[in-house]
Design a protein around this nucleic acid. Sequence first.
DNA 1: TATGAATGAGGCTTCATTCAT
DNA 2: CATGAATGAAGCCTCATTCAT
Lengths: 209, 209, 209, 209
Amino acid sequence: MSEAAKEPRWERRKQDRPQELLAAALQLFVERGYAATRLEDVATRAGVSKGTLYLYFENKESLFKSVVRANMLPLLDEAEAMVDNHAGSSAELLRELITGWWQAAKHSGLTGISKLMMAESGNFPELARFYHEEIILRSDAMVVRMLERGMARGEFRQIDAEAMKKVIVAPVVMLMLWDQSFGPCSITPIDPQAYLTSLIDLCINGLKA
Amino acid sequence: MSEAAKEPRWERRKQDRPQELLAAALQLFVERGYAATRLEDVATRAGVSKGTLYLYFENKESLFKSVVRANMLPLLDEAEAMVDNHAGSSAELLRELITGWWQAAKHSGLTGISKLMMAESGNFPELARFYHEEIILRSDAMVVRMLERGMARGEFRQIDAEAMKKVIVAPVVMLMLWDQSFGPCSITPIDPQAYLTSLIDLCINGLKA
Amino acid sequence: MSEAAKEPRWERRKQDRPQELLAAALQLFVERGYAATRLEDVATRAGVSKGTLYLYFENKESLFKSVVRANMLPLLDEAEAMVDNHAGSSAELLRELITGWWQAAKHSGLTGISKLMMAESGNFPELARFYHEEIILRSDAMVVRMLERGMARGEFRQIDAEAMKKVIVAPVVMLMLWDQSFGPCSITPIDPQAYLTSLIDLCINGLKA
Amino acid sequence: MSEAAKEPRWERRKQDRPQELLAAALQLFVERGYAATRLEDVATRAGVSKGTLYLYFENKESLFKSVVRANMLPLLDEAEAMVDNHAGSSAELLRELITGWWQAAKHSGLTGISKLMMAESGNFPELARFYHEEIILRSDAMVVRMLERGMARGEFRQIDAEAMKKVIVAPVVMLMLWDQSFGPCSITPIDPQAYLTSLIDLCINGLKA
DNA sequence: TATGAATGAGGCTTCATTCAT
DNA sequence: CATGAATGAAGCCTCATTCAT
């Protein structure tokens, strides 16, 4: 129909605006940091004007918090389900947990959010607390459950799971951060596949009974 | 002595000014990020006036670069010497390398610099490259030498040292970042000692032949 | 009747829109001043959307002028007729003039308009001139006629009516202004009845032959 | 000396700045109202740049409050002393009080402040309360004392001083407002001398025993 | 050297006005 | 006629930088 051609690019899609703005803001906040990100750039990247932003977010800080919350919340459920329902060996679970975690983080905005929180936690203590509770505590606990499952089944040797959890999480988080900070800089880019393979190899060998 | 009277110990010596400014700037840049750090706050924390800062540094960017360079340079020599001259077992070397690295980073400003570069690499590509070459490449290479020494001596199993190097460095760097970002937030602070012990335990068990 | 069903009483009739907008605008302009009044608030108070306002008024300035003119025009005729046709004593005329003036001003929007012109005359010189000619000159002249009538009839002593006119008008205008500015602030509100009684008492005693 | 010529107009007089800014702000706030006054215009009129204003006042509202307070406080003492210490007849006191009040108001910034408060009291309730207590209540009380003195000495007839006070104050205040609002508009300017003479004449005749 | 008053470019935010529906 | 999403000019405010002392 010729009518369909009538509404190509000038159509205003009110309901999509917040998503587009959040996506644009996430990119810029991650790239440049909170203070160095200009709202006009966010608006331009979302294809709207400066003023439009204020139809959906009260101010810059509110936009920032929305970016963090929107990208943080719908994330850990899948990984947690995997840990709790896994039927195979603990080595297999560990492998799937790490690779799955990275895949999920890569496709959602979590890699960017992690970098953002690392950089801005000092300026937004409430957000840092929120991030700590929603992401850090939950992912730590997930790893602990995985380790204890392995020890209970006799597949992993006896270790201090509480002390070990962050050691295992750390390389995954670092991969996210490198991906976001030095990745774009593109100096000897890291190969996530080989990196994760080595990590899993080290863990499985380092934990096996 | 009449000289002592001329120069009581509370008097700030002029030649210390740049160091005091760099120290103050490092703290604030790390806490708040580059853009959110006000030069007036840097000057105040260093005990001088805003104008004085410009007697020693051309501008804000120059101060930032000086901060990074001053804290980055005098760092890796000791660790490198340790790797090259170590006489004991490779497990022992690994342990000393990791704990020594953390100690050195903790006492120099490297933990802060690492956080800073992670946050600001997008805004300062030249600095990112400099950091990459001076810190990342050298520390990676150091770890590779350590791993190859272990394999050559039959103490470590055969692994892909190039792929493994970053896996081993990552937890140490993460410890620095946590220390700088969520540490001050003081939500369930991490215990570096237990953390490093677990890391070393994991590595030694994961690498042993 | 079927007509009644077609037009329930809660339905806003289109022809009332301009009046409702003018009324809402008058309130807000008087409360907050011209610059501090937002057109969105005017529209909301009138129960319409922001865009609708522009169907009836060209822009903010045009709305403001319409508010002033609409509330200014239909006012002095009654009072003027009273002065010219009064049959009683001049003291009685003075009493009725003052109380009648206040009543009319109170029930029309003139008290608000007076405050508005006092506040915004500097920003709207043409309006100020208009107000001066339509309100100030005419009411001054009315008072002059009243005074001259009293002197002509030997009821008032000989005074300079031209110089006295504003002295007599001033307390009435001040009552309007207090009513509009500090009235809502409600700090020791003024009692118009007692105030006007004192004013009339002072004038009659001060003018009597 | 040629040296004196060296520092003619570029000399920075830190201590005078606040006064110059307050004076410039008073003028513009009175002319245009609070919202319509641009801080850049205030700064320009004071001969400084936009940013300088913020060295002395926190923000626009703070400047506004400072303007009101600075011009309001040092004002009523003289008039009050006059009422309490006057030795002559009460008619004489009334004459001097009214003319003195006008002179003082004219030379201080009170005429402008009065107009400002009339226009902006709705937007600054706290200031309105402050103004009410510091200016209105005190000047009202002063007039009451004057009236009671006259009645006590048998020079004025018995009246309700409380109800009459505002009637006597009103014409003086109106003179201030006219002076500030329609005065600059310069349409048939009022002659303060003749106006006050008529006012005093009316009062003395209207109050005499 | 050291100071701190002054500057002005630039970012955040508001709101009068437009326009496609 | 009515709506309300969108625009962008304009004002407040911050802060890196300069400069006379």
